[in-house]
């Protein structure tokens, strides 16, 4: 039995789960297990409350349009708790739809404006008859790390002046194909369009997130040296 445990909430995991998003939790558990930490995951969906003090990591993935609309109707009941979790430095990963919904609003393919939960103020416009699909490579401006992934999105997301991108695009389109940014970082919250699950392919980033989670939950343990022993996957 592991002595340490992390709790993960997979937000609307039964509705927002396209293109391997759950892989992010698989990767996180994999590295955590190697240093004796268990990861438990709960799907928090339409019928459930989100308790912002209960989790060390929250994953909010992408969904099909239909499911995304159902989720949008349910979100107001959870959005205050989600905002508290983010403001209190909780580790959060929003992928594609989950990234868009954290922001101010997004515009559907048919032009309808849908309100986000406004935890941040980025917004997402649509593009007609085209999608950004393909491999992406970005560089993290804070540490020079390179991240690889696969993007597949119709939305074009624009960050608010107070937000910064996760990385600058070396290959692919990124948030909007214009400003060279991909994803978003705000406190310990990350947004991205990487569906080729970002944490499976970019072990460095995964280990940084893992360390943040563990240091928040178990501040008296020297996690940095244990994590430094791990070999991050990168492909």
């Amino acid at each position: 039995m592991a002595d340490y445990k992390l709790q993960t909430a997979h937000l609307y995991g039964d509705l927002m789960n396209t293109y391997g998003d759950y892989g992010n939790i698989i990767a996180l558990s994999y590295y955590a297990n190697l240093i004796g930490v268990d990861v438990e995951t709960q799907v928090i969906s339409l019928e459930d409350d989100f308790d912002d003090t209960a989790y060390d990591f929250v994953l909010f993935g992408g969904g099909q349009d239909y499911e995304q609309m159902v989720v949008t109707k349910d979100l107001p009941g959870k959005s205050e708790a989600i905002k508290r979790y983010i403001e209190n430095d909780g580790v959060f990963l929003g992928v594609c739809g989950g990234f868009q919904l954290l922001g101010d609003y997004f515009v559907l393919a048919d032009g309808t404006r849908v309100e986000g939960i406004k935890a941040m103020m980025h917004y997402t416009l649509n593009q007609t008859d085209s999608r950004f699909i393909g491999n992406v490579v970005i560089e993290d401006p804070t540490n020079g790390d390179v991240y690889r992934g696969f993007e597949n999105h119709q939305g074009r997301t624009f960050l608010d002046a107070e937000e910064r991108p996760l990385g600058m695009v070396k290959q692919g389109n990124g948030n909007n194909g214009e400003d060279g940014g991909e994803g978003l970082v705000y406190k310990n919250t990350y947004g991205t369009y990487f569906h080729g699950p970002i944490l499976t392919r970019n072990g460095n980033l995964t280990l940084r997130l893992l360390q943040t989670m563990l240091e928040r939950r178990y501040p008296d343990v020297d996690w940095a040296s244990q994590i430094a022993q791990l070999e991050p996957e990168f492909f």
């Binding site: 039964d14 789960n17 759950y22 799907v43 019928e47 239909y66 499911e67």
Partner: peptide
């Protein structure tokens, strides 16, 4: 039971509940 996380099409046709 509810469907596992990774399942499509689990909304009720009547009211879009799970």
């Amino acid at each position: 039971m509810r469907a596992p996380y990774n399942t499509d099409g689990v909304l009720s046709p009547t009211d879009d509940s799970i």
